[in-house]
Design a protein around this nucleic acid. Structure first.
Lengths: 206, 206
DNA sequence: GTCTATACGTAGATAGAC
DNA sequence: GTCTATCTACGTATAGAC
């Protein structure tokens, strides 16, 4: 946090989150950082460069966190719970960067855009593998993998839009709610009974 | 579609969706409409005025659609299914306007912002009432009404981000998937057994 | 209703002194 | 590393002719 390069990045995150990338000017960032706007260009090549570095670091950390959590979890349901919890917590704890990473893709150049989308796709594919394995194993209902992965991820990601750090619930409490909601949605226990062989018993409903 | 005022609005929806509100200039809109940029101001007071009219009309239509669907449905689960289906279909069928309405709030003036948020709150409260009624009646598990309403709405809304009209699935197929996922998530049949008095039987799982 | 012309501000970025 | 000064381009919006 000490050096100016870090300060500029930190100020940019705050401003991009509050006002949006396009509405934030280099002058705004300079003012927030306590320097003249020309000095920004000593540390960063352009405004788009700043945006890309923020997004790129966020995506890298997100995937690293997920892989760590999955390595420590065994069994498909437990892994999916860990993945969902990790996704929610990461997005709420680093709300601003995640909000930016999900809403300012249009500020990127073509190459940078591709780089970020590649990272996002890699992250999504981990969730898709988990869902696929769960359906094959009969732990989850026979759901559409692609649509459900988008649903689960955007659902949790949206938390970064409305989350209030001073609000009624803690990050862990919100993660609990999402975890149960999503696992129930994947199992669909009250809608379609799972094969008797898998569950041992039929679900009474329906 | 015949008059210039409608053309300008339609072109603006396309451009705001593709490039974003801030990245779209009045010159872009004029070029797309086949007139000079000064002529835009004969029809609309400002760029922000255009944005507000697009958002406002979209929100009004959204709420009207929901109320119509609910009036035709009986029973809490059936009503929730109708509400979810309506929300999904509206967002996919009018993808561009809905994407704009959910991502460009920062382009609005303070008063216009308040007006749109008021409309959104009214819409959300209908969902919150449904969830609350469902939990009281025991049709749904004892879930957190606020968080679940945000979850359900943002989940479906996000469809407008990734939906491809030429993609693998139809709007109705996607609506089916979302409906089952959400109803399962609200019932949580495979996680927490509902009160025996309400269901008549216990759910076998757990 | 649509045009041409233009006012006026501010944007991102660079040059070169210190 | 940070500054002052400046370039160049483009933004929204208006004035006034037709």
């Amino acid at each position: 946090m000490g050096d100016m390069k870090t300060t500029i990045k930190s100020v940019s995150i705050d401003l991009f989150f509050e006002k949006g990338y396009f509405a934030t000017s280099i002058s705004d960032i300079a003012r927030g950082s306590g320097i003249q706007k020309a000095s920004i260009y000593y540390h960063y090549a352009s405004k788009a460069d700043l945006l890309f570095r923020i997004m790129s670091a966020t995506m890298d950390d997100l995937t690293t966190t997920l892989k760590e959590r999955l390595a420590a979890a065994g069994g498909i349901e437990v892994q999916m719970r860990a993945a969902v919890r990790g996704h929610v917590c990461f997005h709420l704890e680093r709300q601003k960067e995640n909000f930016i990473a999900n809403s300012e893709l249009r500020g990127l150049s073509a190459e940078h855009y591709r780089a970020i989308v590649r990272k996002r796709d890699e992250y999504e594919s981990i969730f898709q593998q988990l869902i696929h394995q769960g359906t094959v194993a009969g732990v989850f209902a026979d759901v559409d993998v692609k649509i459900l992965s988008y649903a689960i991820l955007t659902l949790c990601t949206a938390g970064a839009t409305w989350y209030n750090p001073n609000g009624r619930l803690t990050v862990d409490e919100i993660a609990d709610i999402y975890e149960n909601f999503i696992i129930s949605g994947l199992k669909q226990g009250c809608l379609t009974p799972l094969p008797a062989a898998e569950k041992g018993i039929f679900n009474g409903t329906q």
